[in-house]
Design a protein around this nucleic acid. Structure first.
Lengths: 159, 159
DNA sequence: GGTCTGACTTGCATTTACAGAAGTCAGCAA
DNA sequence: TTGCTGACTTCTGTAAATGCAAGTCAGACC
């Protein structure tokens, strides 16, 4: 199958999964909430404080994210406290980990500060830092330029 | 080193590379332009048409992205035509490929349509589809829950 | 000189997002 | 019964983003 990039004009970019993904996790604060959630934050006030967004904005964001199925609002109760709710990642939300990791890798390389990264994700077994890398289904690592773009079943051809 | 998630309150989320990355590629249209650029689009009108954003917005977006170092504005000339400019990915821009790939993977899984994905990225050598996966520097694949979050040099402790 | 085209720019009008301050509400504790 | 605290909601003003329509500009071509 030819690389679609060779005739870029013969197909449409509608129905793009990247665009649909961006409709769900497309805003800055949504991504930062996801980062916090993946770092273990669960409670409203902590999200507000750590993401650095106002309470009204955070309430709206969390509501959207629950509606989108990224987070679940779960009641819990600490001894001597009333029932409260916390926000837990769903499977759908948890699977954004590669996206956030890739973003963190990129930020550490291309938007770094003098002080270096504030947190590092490491492999539990060996302690080495974790990165998002590209790999094909046959298990080969993908080096630069080794990717072809081919038509999928949902492709809309223009002619 | 302990997993920082165990005492989530002892450290601050300032100086986060994810946040800094989102300051650069944080908007929906920026990501869609990156996706297009990675698929081979180079010219202003094509970006406008394929990303589905108005000309003024696209002009502003491209200008920002050039200023941010994601794209380079390069003069070119087709025979019989006047000199024009096209937008080429820089190294910095190109290295967002894992982010876009992870996003595409996620979108294909969690925001799919009936028709299936419109395009598939495949490994040039073997034709198998490409995914973004997590791997540590020692080469181990990372399974679910095998990640620790530890303090990096830039961490701000709160106590 | 006039036309045409790609690549923008300018000007509005409108929507959307967000901050900040203040108010609400539930229920445990005193 | 009042206070307190976490988790919100409401209100208001402002700033940013985007769409649409129209205008500009450079240079090849006629």
């Amino acid at each position: 199958m030819e690389d679609l990039r060779d005739d870029r004009d013969s197909w449409s970019s509608e129905n793009c999964s990247v665009a649909r993904a961006m409709d769900i996790v497309g805003s800055r604060s949504t991504v930062l909430v996801m980062r916090e959630a993946l770092l273990g934050t669960r409670r409203f006030d902590d999200f507000v404080r750590r993401v650095g967004v106002g309470e009204p904005a955070m309430a709206a964001r969390l509501k959207e994210m629950v509606a989108a199925g990224l987070l679940e609002r779960i009641p819990y109760r600490e001894p001597g406290q009333r029932t409260r709710h916390e926000y837990q990642l769903t499977q759908k939300g948890h699977e954004l980990l590669p996206v956030i990791t890739a973003l963190r890798n990129w930020g550490d390389t291309w938007a770094a500060t003098d002080t270096g990264p504030s947190v590092v994700a490491t492999h539990h077994d060996c302690g080495e830092p974790v990165r998002a890398v590209l790999r094909c289904a046959a298990g080969h690592d993908i080096a630069d330029g080794e990717i072809d773009i081919i038509a999928g079943p949902g492709l809309v051809r223009l002619d």
